[in-house]
Design a protein around this nucleic acid. Structure first.
Length: 373
RNA sequence: GUGAGUGUAGCUCAGCUGGUGGCAGCACCGGGUUGUGGCCUCGGCGGUCGUGGGUUCAAGUCCCUCCACUCACC
């Protein structure tokens, strides 16, 4: 099976690498950040804006779209891309995480996950096969296997059982897949247990996936713990398959993830925090609602080249936020996503020039005080 | 001018028949946010109860005076 992923350059000092992932709707340069568009929209941002700020691929969610408006409706209307007017790649999350995080009463059995709709309480069921069929109906470019997410903390026994089930589901997902050309990524669980993680990883490699994801991280565990798992797992994933760290994270997390050899990330942080007034800048975080920006005529981030920083002052952005204007969410989201996409572009360039660690040092130096982890 | 009504937090107001000023809303200030139930969430600041007297053990609450504002009528 030819690999959809090719490594183009490697750091000589760490695990960082840059590469190219080929999908049905185009090629993605990695490392990449994927803005989250759960309900067939990256909240507050138009597809045109996403393109101009440099988004290569976005994420959609099986769980949400399955519940509303329904995958059959989206299929009928020409698939998710046409439905939301986005012609670049889309990765769909399988719904495992949402069933885990939105449904306290979800019942996980060998067959699949029984849960209730968070919208109307309706009883629903999703098997690994269903998850694949829904994602095929949506027509995403990268599908994810249905997994079970292990809460933190969890006992070793709980983690072992959930991981084994996730692995069996992964095999069923692979089997259920039709030859649509869509890629399918397997998800490594295992909680905070390195041996379980490595075991899961080997089983998934045996099944054979187009890419491998690390799931169940950044769920409340200490940061060092996540980095330990990352350092242990990432190098053991197949070299010529892309590696996806799910749901992560802060700018620092992205830099450290890349250092450990991760190629793909997604996180709600840039968009959610934008809507709540927390903005990312080259000098660290900035809470735009703070009174000190009331008369600040300067740009959000003097080192940023985004349209928001070029055209608007901190004072104006604060005013929009304080006034609950819709434009605040829009502009803040554009800026934060630009920051994330630009950070990834800078890392790709640094790896190509084999100066990733120097880039990392500079990244932390700008945020003077914040030390490398 | 006469009659009626209203004055409690920056704003809008609760405060029952007197018993320590409100877990009120909004505003303001600050924190949080990691495969999105999110313009969300947690916390904080904030008051000579219009003025001056009186009654009472005790007054935002009852009585009188004055002031301000609102409405109606001359």
């Amino acid at each position: 099976m030819p690999s959809p992923f090719t490594v183009l350059a490697r750091s000589s000092e760490c695990q960082a690498r840059t590469g190219r992932l080929v999908t049905l709707r185009g090629t993605i340069e990695t490392p990449v950040f994927m803005p989250v568009g759960t309900q067939a929209t990256v909240k507050a941002v138009t597809p045109e804006d996403l393109k101009s700020l440099g988004a290569q691929i976005i994420l959609g969610n099986t769980y949400h779209l399955y519940i509303r408006p329904g995958h059959e409706l989206i299929r009928e209307l020409g698939g998710l891309h046409r439905f939301m007017h986005w012609d670049r790649p889309i990765l769909t999350d399988s719904g495992g995480f949402q069933i885990f995080s939105l449904n306290e009463l979800a019942k996980i059995t060998e067959e699949g996950a029984a849960f209730r709709s968070h919208l109307d309480g309706a009883k629903l069921f999703l098997s690994p096969e269903d998850a694949i069929h829904v994602q095929e109906a949506l027509g995403s470019d990268i599908m994810m296997t249905l997994d079970t997410c292990i809460p933190f903390p969890a006992t070793r026994d709980e983690a072992a059982r959930a991981t084994a089930l996730t692995n069996r589901w992964a095999r069923r997902c692979r089997t259920a897949q039709s030859p649509t050309g869509q890629l399918l990524f397997g998800i490594v669980q295992g909680g905070m247990n390195e041996d379980l993680r490595l075991e899961a990883l080997e089983e998934l490699k045996d099944i054979g996936f187009d890419g491998y994801a690390l799931g169940g991280l950044s769920v409340g565990e200490p940061k060092e713990m996540m980095l330990d798992i990352l350092a242990c797992c990432a190098p053991r994933l197949p070299e010529e398959r892309s590696r996806y760290l799910m749901g992560v994270g802060t700018p620092e997390d992205l830099v450290e993830g890349v250092r450990h050899g991760v190629d793909m990330f997604d996180c709600v942080m840039p968009t959610r925090n934008a809507r709540n007034g927390m903005l990312f800048t080259s000098q660290g975080k900035l809470v735009i609602k703070n009174a000190c920006f009331q008369r600040d005529a300067g740009p959000l981030d003097p080192l940023c080249t985004c349209s928001v920083c070029k055209n608007f002052s901190r004072a104006y952005l604060r005013h929009l936020f304080q006034s609950h204007e819709i434009l605040a969410s829009q502009l803040n989201s554009i800026h934060n996503l630009h920051y994330y996409c630009n950070l990834m572009a800078q890392m790709r360039e640094a790896i190509r020039q084999d100066r990733f660690l120097a880039f990392r040092d500079e990244f932390y130096r700008l945020r003077n005080g914040q030390k490398p982890m």
